[in-house]
Every structure is written in C-alpha cells, then in structure tokens.
Computed example of a mutant assay.
Amino acid sequence: MRPDGRAVRSRVWRREFPGRASSVPAARAWARDLLAVRLAPGVLDDVLLLLSEVVTNAVTHSDSGHTAGGRVTVHLSHGSEGVHVEVTDDGSATSAPAVHVPRTDDDGGRGMWLVALLATTWGASGNDDEAGRSVWFEMLRDPSPGP
C-alpha cells in the first residue's frame, strides 16, 4: 500500500536455478528478459549487475554450490516504485553476507560492496545453519535526483 492508501500493483516472478556457476548468466538472462521493457536501461544494468553478484555469492559461499542438488531461487517483483530482487540459497554454517571495502588490488570481494553502493536498500535474512538464507535488494524505478 502507498501512504495515500492506494494499492501498489506489481508483477512477481520466481525461478529456481542449480547451485552452479552456470546459473549466474542464466539468472541474468532470465531477469533481463522480464525487466527490459519495464526499467530504464541504466536501472536495468544496475539490477542485472547486482543480481549477478548475489547469485555468484550464493553459489560460491553457500551450501547451494557445495552440495549435490543445491539450489538458488530468484524472486523478482516489479511495481510502480521499482524492483525488488531476492536470492535464496541453502545457507552456510561458515559464512554470512557481509560488506567488505575492497582494496584496488583485490581480485574479488566486491559483490556485497556493490549491492550496498548501488541498491536503494538491501538486507539479508534467514538462519544460515538451517533452512537457508536470502539476500535481497531494491532499486527505484527512476533514480533521478530530486529538485
């Protein structure tokens, strides 16, 4: 609901991917096909970049990418305000999503830093040692500055 009491209409999609590196470009292509006509090109580029980073993290750092049959599920919702992306994985008893400020010579470790930098808002939820976890982010439809 909006502050004025009107309902916000949104489209919602869900797709499950194997916990493999090949799921990163597959998730990106799927999201691009759904959102290309709904988002401005710059916003779409940012959403796809962040989706790629979060799916990569799910495959690399959770049990989804380290156990047979591991899965990563992507939820997308698009409404008048923008887009909400949530990536659910099988969790991990040894790692949790965290923002690290990368050094210029680091080969990796920029995923959550980019999410924190570019997303309007983001968060993580779930019990990492039991039923999995979710990392989500939101992007406004039109990130143009105000007056």
Rank of each mutant, 00 (worst) to 15 (best):
G108C: 15
L118G: 04
V99F: 07
W122A: 01
E130V: 14
L114P: 04
H100I: 08
N127I: 09
D89E: 11
A124V: 04
A96Y: 15
A98Q: 04
T88L: 11
R103A: 08
M112C: 08
S95M: 09
G91K: 10
P97D: 03
A93P: 13
T104K: 00
V115W: 05
G91N: 11
V101L: 10
H100G: 03
L118R: 08
G109S: 05
A98S: 07
N127H: 15
N127V: 13
L114N: 08
L114H: 10
E86I: 06
G126E: 00
T94N: 14
A98C: 02
R103H: 11
E130T: 12
D89Q: 13
N127Y: 13
L118C: 05
V101G: 07
M112W: 09
T120N: 09
A96D: 12
S95K: 12
A96S: 14
T121A: 12
V115N: 00
P97T: 03
V99T: 02
V87F: 01
L117E: 04
D90I: 07
A93L: 13
A93Q: 12
S92F: 06
V87H: 01
G126Y: 02
G91H: 09
G91Q: 06
D128R: 15
L117N: 02
N127G: 13
P97C: 06
G108N: 08
A98Y: 05
W122C: 01
D105P: 00
P97E: 00
G123K: 02
N127T: 13
A116Y: 03
